[in-house]
Design a protein around this nucleic acid. Structure first.
Lengths: 338, 338
DNA sequence: TATATTTGTTTAATCGATTAACCAAAAGTA
DNA sequence: TACTTTTGGTTAATCGATTAAACAAATATA
């Protein structure tokens, strides 16, 4: 019920010393005697002293908060990235503020404003699909705080980026499907304007060429990659006079939608058509047949993004440049493709 | 590159007025002339002034931040609750800080400390399964800021709570299974010490009695409700000499584990054994057969929890009492039970 | 005209912690 | 003894926004 929280002053009064001495004692300043330190810490404990973060942050010009923006938290990938990021940052004395854009540009802008307003010391973000206008991200840079992107990045911003090699991942998938005897491989990809999806598409095309397989335009489809759109797009492929014998879908959700339609149509997976997703969402191993997918090493991405942020702390001026950390991905082969 | 942010002083200097006048002008104080207000706002825009949240929060003793603690964000239920909570709070000028306990008591305590340290104006939480010791939650109360619990609550804390009627939900499930002709219904429930799981168990027992069905001890199992444990516990039920003809699992994840085993064993669902989960996770409609489940109205829960918090703002002293908002749940019938 | 009121703004204190600059007393040194 | 250095603090300014109190000028009222 004692709404009044104890402050440095309260401790100082009890011991009849200055608040400065108390502050230094609590921060283990060398100029404070061991005896005083002990006494101060003792009283601090007795009065249940909790430092006022706002005051110290204001004075030090540093909030020890890091803002995080993800498209959504209820995806195992982002949730795992955030969890690992948090672990690293907590150890370094930072707390994180998680916000989600729900893939909306407008919401993303609001989040950026809210984070800047809260005086975060840096922002780690994965961009919404919708985002094309980069002015809000430029705003972050103009604040002079570090900005680190992961997974969904953008070269034009010239900031640090952590992600996997999407181009190479496509090659891994196509190589695998070819090794399984596939000759006509389709790709339900994301929108080309999003860098990662563009890379997956490029990888798909180049890998197809590498194996001297047909690369008909009709086999390459751009999609929003939702479950529902996965259903729609597979229908198009099934309607072709010359059906594919394998489909590489750039997202597990859309892959699941495709799988549902295939099953409803009585088309055997993997016997008639092989299917590969992307992202290694937990449900890929839960559905029947389980879906082959790409694991993106969310733990590593989270940790590296956090460490990249921490790397800026030593420097007194933040000068960012396009500094990419690209991780290898991992193909998890499951029933849908073998 | 202008690392220096503009402050009230900068604006004041440009116009040769006091910072007090600038502050009042920006806050539309009645005592400032329209002319001055216009000029101030104009300059503020030109200099791209962004108020320093730390300073105003310190002065006003109010951070406009609300802390949220959830067991994990990558569950559709919690993610949806948080999303709706955020919407309501944002409209009222509040931002939220999301933290996850990962069902760990230790992590939860750390989160509480971090949130209090950040000077949040209130905390909305759903407790970790592990949590039995309530001292950290008492600590929140002792800070004099509102604490609102949802889904995973605890009567002893005497604070506001928003959730569904678990007892009644069990009745809905049993009623449904009985109407489908089931005569021997098992329950893989959570740990009794968690209130919501205890209520589900009580509801199960009472509903069974209501229908004059056998309530053997062997049909009621306590579980951690993970997917893996769902696999383990169904094995026990299958090993019984007198197998159940329906299983009500208190979590969708555990229900999925059970379903996997049933399918592996070649036991037909729902023909031989009917299955019902709890929580209406998206995958329940994605797997084959789709799983009947309980929808918990996450949107409502999120909104109501947020509104409950906002309700405290008018009062000058926070006096909390056990004030429960119990929502009706909804049974979503799918293939696994009919 | 003299006084009261309103308007619009300034002054200065404040929130709580930190820190540069200063200082007295104790200890060391020549 | 006289001077320097070290020890262990204190004083006061500061971070940036807010706000109670004060105040001058303009306007209203008697």
């Amino acid at each position: 019920m004692n709404k009044k929280r104890t402050t440095l002053k309260d401790i100082a009064n009890v011991l009849s010393i200055s608040t400065a001495a108390v502050s230094k004692a609590l921060n283990d300043d060398a100029r404070i005697s061991v005896k005083t330190k002990k006494a101060v810490k003792q009283v601090a404990k007795e009065l249940n002293y909790q430092p006022n973060h706002l005051a110290s942050a204001l004075r030090k010009g540093k909030s020890n908060l890091v803002g995080v923006i993800v498209p959504r938290t209820n995806s195992s990938f982002f949730s795992s990235v955030v969890e690992n990021m948090e672990e690293v940052l907590n150890k370094a004395g930072y707390n994180i503020i998680i916000t989600q854009s729900n893939e909306s540009f407008e919401k993303e802008c609001k989040n950026i404003d809210a984070l800047l307003y809260t005086q975060v010391d840096g922002i780690i973000a994965s961009m919404a699909n919708e985002t094309v206008d980069l002015s809000y991200y430029e705003k972050i840079k103009s604040y002079g705080i570090p900005l680190i992107l992961f997974d969904r990045g953008e070269n034009d911003l010239n900031v640090d980026y952590v992600g996997i090699d999407d181009y190479k991942s496509s090659h891994m998938i196509i190589d695998h499907l070819v090794s399984q005897g596939c000759k006509r491989i389709a790709h339900i990809g994301g929108y080309r304007r999003t860098r990662i999806f563009n890379n997956r598409i490029r990888g798909y095309i180049d890998a197809i060429k590498k194996h001297d397989l047909p690369h008909d335009d009709e086999l390459l489809i751009e999609s929003s990659l939702t479950l529902e759109d996965g259903r729609q797009q597979i229908e198009k492929l099934l309607a072709l006079k010359n059906r594919p014998d394998a489909v590489y879908v750039a997202s597990d959700y859309a892959a699941l939608g495709s799988l549902q339609v295939l099953k409803e149509r009585g088309i055997k997976v993997p016997e008639e058509i092989k299917l590969v997703g992307f992202g290694n969402e937990p449900f890929t191993s839960l559905v029947t047949p389980s879906i082959t997918s790409i694991n993106q090493h969310s733990e590593q991405i989270g940790k590296l993004a956090a460490e990249t942020f921490l790397g800026y702390l030593e420097k007194d001026v933040v000068v960012q440049s396009l500094n990419k950390i690209i991780l290898d991905s991992e193909l998890i082969v499951r029933s849908s493709s073998e």
